[in-house]
């Protein structure tokens, strides 16, 4: 048993980390994009001409999922005969973007949904709505940054 864990545990842990990065960050994005989508559909039902503006807002919380994917792919590149310690390190290295990606995606969704109501009332201020939403993303970027740097340190 112990030998099996020693032989395959590293890869398994690393893949678990990669999977979590894609899953949890993706969940955050899915939730965020979903929230904005509902608000956006409401705005478009009143004025179809605002589709372009709310579409930009809707796509914004999607990036966290991409960052999760990015981290997962970087871990994937290292998989193959990893020892237990390296596997565990890759697992932990995946956590920042996984967890922060979830919350950042969700919160960005809420800000962007509020941005949609801004667009509904004052379409000329849509740029500000976009910037409010982009602020939330900074923390996903910082988390991705640290995940990438940590993944790079392994192996």
């Amino acid at each position: 048993m112990f030998q099996i864990v020693q032989a395959f545990g590293g890869d398994a842990l690393a893949i678990l980390g990669a999977a979590l990065a894609a899953i949890i960050a993706g969940m955050g994005s899915a939730k965020g994009v979903g929230i904005v989508g509902e608000a956006a559909a409401g705005v478009v039902s009143e004025d179809p001409g605002k589709f372009g503006k709310v579409l930009i807002l809707e796509i914004l919380p999607g990036t966290q999922g991409l960052y999760g994917l990015l981290a997962a792919i970087m871990v994937m590149g290292k998989v193959g005969g990893l020892d237990l310690a390296s596997g565990a390190m890759l697992f932990f290295a995946s956590l920042p973007i996984a967890i922060v990606g979830y919350f950042s995606g969700k919160s960005q969704g809420r800000v962007a949904a509020a941005g949609c109501s801004l667009v509904a009332k004052k379409p000329e201020q849509s740029g500000k709505g976009i910037i409010f939403a982009a602020m939330v993303e900074t923390y996903a970027i910082l988390a991705l940054l640290i995940s990438i740097l940590l993944i790079g340190k392994v192996g």
């Binding site: 930009i56 976009i130 939403a133």
Partner: peptide, 9 residues
């Protein structure tokens, strides 16, 4: 879209 938004930011 992502690039547009973040360049503006």
């Amino acid at each position: 879209i992502g690039t547009y938004v973040h360049t503006n930011r």
